[in-house]
Design a protein around this nucleic acid. Structure first.
Lengths: 346, 346
DNA sequence: TTGTAGGCGTTATCAC
DNA sequence: GTGATAACGCCTACAA
């Protein structure tokens, strides 16, 4: 079944069918109705490839989960709490906009899948999330004019085809720091991700700002860099941190991501320490499941649903309008959720 | 950049370029090499739409998460523990096969997206998971000849274009039941999903078999049907169950799915009862996070990774071979993981 | 308001 | 081993 057959059944030409399909105004009401009925009866759906070939954008978005860590373990980044949620929300949101998402895990070995999918016109636009993409590669993609939304990748949009969405990482760090200070902690440590990550640095800057406001310093010896999106990264970083400072343990740890939090929690248990009696915990990012744990874990969170909504919706707008007036978005509704993992020191 | 331009640069015709692209044998080694170099230099990627138009299958699989519950709450089915994992694994596995997945949440209002995506040739094949699709609609899709893998939807494949993959639901139910019996429980309840679901019935049948083997009955009053893929479904079902039997509480509940488990757990807490002192809990399906809870929850699980691997790989095979000799698969490596939520009664 | 014709980029068929 | 040509199904001029 194709437009020619529909045209025959309706006694019109293919162009008229096409006009109906694309809601062009210059079709008589009677003809339009007749054709629409036949389309419905015949269950006709235009061939997406043919449309694409004559230059119409398809309704497919690429969602690229960048996962370029050096040391792989059993977890892919899309199994980390934030991306679990992000993927689920973004599928739904894209669907509601009438788009579908083509989701790809981008590792070192398939890094040019991004370019390939754009070049083959399989996708009309893309969202990049997860690890930081190598900046040369990013530059290259931007230069090709591909329409993209970059989430937590760079600070500012650098081209009309690029929309930048960032978490208010600084605020998250600050809120976590303020909570610990408020509860009377002074020996505060920070387990966080890779040094070169935008989000890692900003969160750390926020934490430091909170401590400084209270006349405290974020001691270098109390900072340990792990792997942002991996449980094992948190586990090992926490072990290193606590071993190194065994004679002067921190009373609280601010953990830079929800994935690492699960590892830190486990490491503390494995070392025979208790949460929160020996060490208080708070994480930046969190997940539903925190509330079922014992102790229930405190967190500073920005709504993942909101991140998904902003990234997907902006991309759809960019595609449909051709360009966007504002291309930089910061999602700043960070919120502290107090649970039981932060002890109040007198 | 298209094949014509490549052809010009290589001083050959488009046909030869096409032959190189598609690994046809009848091209001289020298020509092939020359063309390949140019393709690489020019970063040329064939237009997917054009290929599709002349009848080549694209490398896109539809993943349809069926979510047709009557009462929506905040959770979409793809945020339930099993699908969190399933989606993450299947993205990765499809990618490794050189395919991408187009993931859609199928609700009542967009139920014919499945047909539309096939008809528009946006996808070459599809995987159906989640709720049961209405059987008339399923019949219709099967009749169209669409290549599909159905997961936990029907018992047996009914057409050459359909591969059926099922969890060994019976075995899961049986293992959970056996564990409770072994620990000395006799008043065993079952919180499970919708009555018409294949997996619900099979799990229940397995549980019942285990009890019967021990000379016990699965009391009708101890069965409560909730909503398989929703936390709230478990929560409310548990409340109904426990209220109804307040004078003769069960000592253990077997929960039919991981989503419901979180709700049941919460409901028990909210009613002032303790796990496992007052009520033991075991669930069919589980998740990593169970081990961080207090008490850590016992579960019977089939590897979600395996489910993803089988469903995706079979679909790829079906697409590439045209047909499959065996079309029915049962994933039967169910395993009991004992943690702390089942009390041993003397 | 409607029809005709050309072209999008690829592959397959046939000829050489 | 290679090249010319005709599809594939659609959309968009332009013509009527």
């Amino acid at each position: 079944m194709n437009s020619t057959e529909i045209a025959k059944l309706a006694n019109v030409s293919r162009s008229t069918v096409s006009r109906v399909l694309n809601n062009h105004p210059n079709v008589s009401a009677r003809t339009r109705e007749r054709i629409e009925t036949i389309i419905r009866e015949q269950n006709y759906v235009p061939d997406a490839a043919a449309r694409n070939l004559v230059g119409k954008q398809n309704k497919i978005l690429g969602l690229f989960i960048i996962d370029v860590a050096d040391d792989y373990d059993e977890y892919t980044i899309c199994r980390s709490p934030f991306f679990y949620d992000y993927i689920a929300y973004s599928i739904d949101i894209a669907n509601r906009h009438g788009y579908n998402q083509l989701i790809t895990v981008v590792r070192k070995e398939n890094i040019d899948d991004i370019d390939r999918l754009f070049r083959s016109k399989s996708i009309s636009g893309g969202i990049l999330v997860g690890d930081h993409l190598d900046s040369a590669i990013l530059q290259d993609l931007v230069g090709q004019g591909y329409k993209m939304v970059l989430y937590n990748q760079i600070e500012k949009s650098c081209a009309p085809n690029v929309v930048v969405v960032n978490y208010d990482n600084f605020k998250c760090g600050r809120l976590a720091g303020e909570e610990l200070v408020r509860r009377g902690h002074t020996r505060i440590a920070h387990v966080t991700g890779e040094r070169d990550k935008l989000s890692v640095n900003e969160r750390q800057r926020g934490l430091r700002a909170a401590l400084n406001s209270a006349g405290l310093e974020l001691d270098e010896a109390y900072i340990e860099n792990g792997c942002f999106n991996r449980v094992s990264g948190g586990y090992e970083a926490a072990k290193r941190l606590l071993r190194r400072n065994r004679d002067n343990l921190p009373t609280a740890i601010c953990v830079g991501s929800a994935s690492m939090m699960m590892g830190v929690f486990q490491a503390i248990k494995d070392m025979g320490l208790r949460v929160p009696e020996d060490i208080s915990l708070i994480s930046i990012d969190g997940q539903d499941l925190y509330k079922y744990m014992t102790p229930a874990l405190s967190e500073v969170t920005t709504s993942c649903e909101k991140v998904a909504k902003v990234t997907v919706t902006r991309l759809v707008e960019l595609l449909e309008r051709g360009r966007l007036e504002y291309r930089d978005y910061e999602i700043s509704d960070a919120e502290l959720t107090q649970r039981e993992s932060v002890l109040t020191l007198k």
